[in-house]
């Protein structure tokens, strides 16, 4: 079970969180023309990376905030966590 540092609540066990996928995906702006390919990339196409990966988790049984977590998908090492409004650097 992972140990995730919620930027709002501190260190908590994984069972308080739910996983939310790739944090680097940006939703296309509302009402803007977008090609089929770009839309498909947004909805479906994900790189299943091995290694460092920014991903979203929601602290579901805690503060209910969505947070960004930088985790190594192979080793599970967590390097950094950010609040929803903090930019990935």
């Amino acid at each position: 079970m992972l140990h995730i540092k919620c930027p709002h609540c501190g260190m908590r066990s994984q069972n308080e969180f739910s996983y939310g996928g790739d944090a680097t995906v940006k939703r296309p702006e509302l009402g803007k023309e977008i090609s089929d390919q770009d839309w498909d990339n947004f909805v479906y196409n994900r790189k299943s990376l091995r290694g460092k990966h920014w991903e979203l988790w929601q602290h579901l049984s805690g503060c209910r905030q969505w947070i960004k977590v930088q985790r190594d998908t192979a080793t599970h090492e967590i390097f950094k966590t950010l609040k929803a409004n903090e930019e990935i650097s």
């Binding site: 979203l56 929601q58 905030q65 969505w66 929803a84 409004n85």
Partner: peptide, 13 residues
């Protein structure tokens, strides 16, 4: 609820 929170916190803050 999670869906609404997702959009409010991440997409349209």
């Amino acid at each position: 609820l999670s869906h609404l929170e997702y959009y409010l916190q991440l997409v349209w803050p």
